[in-house]
């Protein structure tokens, strides 16, 4: 095998077959992955959920994962949020000429491992190689299909006054990890990405109740953005309890140095759940037994008043608004 990816690997010729054989086929192997033009799959019964997402992250590897793991988690979690058990996934790679083959192998291996854990089969794929400088390292797009568990119906529009809001763990870890990995601000902290496949987490909640109103994974814009989305889509108000929001101390420290709000830093393994108040405690106690949700907590509740707004009860008992999501996250220094 070559040391670096070249344009020949994307030409469709011998090098392409070699790459597919030694890499994708080897790691992704399952009954549905064949050399044919399309995967032939048994049709699930009932409703399916389908989602697609593109993954670009710089740097492509970071403490707690790499772009490969991220590309599986992102799509699996999107399906899980709709109450769908992940079934099939396709992936398309755009690789920059000169990309190290051993790094590609690490990424592909992480995808295979994560897919196995999430119980999803990678059934088709595509590889293109772009000239040097045309892409930044490696882009991956994944598309997934899942089967919705009967009786579960979630939507961003289903939050109701009285619902409790649960987050499945501490917030802002992935965003902080990437910020530190880019090493632009000279800050060091022991923070790893929360990147994780969350179907198991959702399944454990469905075990408690199917009456889950909203499940959404907090990705790019963080938990804060999700809360504003839901407040808008469901036309309800949200009241958070500042002291109840789990934040790792090191994440707080980094945010303090740069003047950033942890609620707006990306997560890749956190769900925000809106559920009936009488189920909240049981959900949290089940979540806390889960592998990826040990720090789950009720962080607030849904109100009828102030629709579209997210309020925060502060540590001194006063109330303020969470600043709505802005554009680019810029450190605030002076």
């Amino acid at each position: 095998m070559d040391e670096f990816i070249t344009l020949a690997h994307g030409s469709g010729g011998r090098k392409t077959s070699e790459l597919i054989g030694s890499m994708f086929k080897k790691y992704f192997e399952n009954d549905y992955l064949t050399a044919d033009d399309a995967a032939v799959l048994p049709a699930p019964t009932g409703k399916i959920a389908m989602s697609t997402d593109g993954f670009i992250v710089s740097p492509y590897e970071f403490p707690g994962g790499n772009v490969g793991k991220l590309s599986i988690c992102g799509t699996v979690n999107d399906l899980a949020c709709m109450g769908a058990k992940p079934l099939y996934l396709t992936c398309a790679f755009v690789i920059e000429e000169g990309f190290p083959v051993n790094k590609l192998e690490e990424i592909v291996a992480a995808m295979a491992k994560t897919a196995r854990e999430a119980g999803i089969c990678i059934v088709a794929g595509d590889t293109k190689v772009a000239g040097k400088g045309q892409v930044d390292g490696l882009f991956i797009t994944t598309t997934g299909v899942g089967q919705i568990v009967e009786g579960v119906e979630t939507s961003g529009a289903f939050a109701r006054p009285g619902d409790k809001i649960i987050v499945t763990g501490d917030v802002g870890r992935h965003g902080t990890t990437i910020l530190l990995a880019r090493d632009e601000y000279g800050i060091e902290a022991n923070v790893t990405s929360d990147c994780a496949p969350l179907w198991g987490t959702v399944e454990s909640m469905i075990g408690v109740t199917k009456d889950l109103h909203v499940i959404r994974d907090a990705t790019r814009g963080g938990v804060g953005t999700v809360l504003y989305e839901i407040a808008e889509e469901s036309r309800v108000g949200i009241r958070l309890e500042r002291s109840a929001i789990p934040v790792q101390p090191a994440v707080s420290g980094v945010c303090g140095m740069l003047g950033l709000e942890p609620l707006y830093l990306a997560c890749e393994g956190r769900l925000v759940i809106f559920a009936p108040a009488d189920k909240a405690d049981e959900l949290v106690s089940v979540l806390r037994k889960g592998k990826y949700s040990a720090d789950a907590a009720v962080i607030g509740e849904v109100t009828e008043d102030m629709p579209g707004r997210v309020r925060v009860r502060t540590a001194i008992g006063s109330e303020t608004l969470l600043p709505p999501p802005g554009g680019e996250l810029l450190p605030r220094i002076c």
């Binding site: 800050i187 060091e188 090191a250 707080s252 980094v254």
Partner: peptide, 9 residues
């Protein structure tokens, strides 16, 4: 310096 686990020179 260390601020709750975040370090910088």
């Amino acid at each position: 310096v260390d601020a709750t686990g975040a370090r910088r020179e």
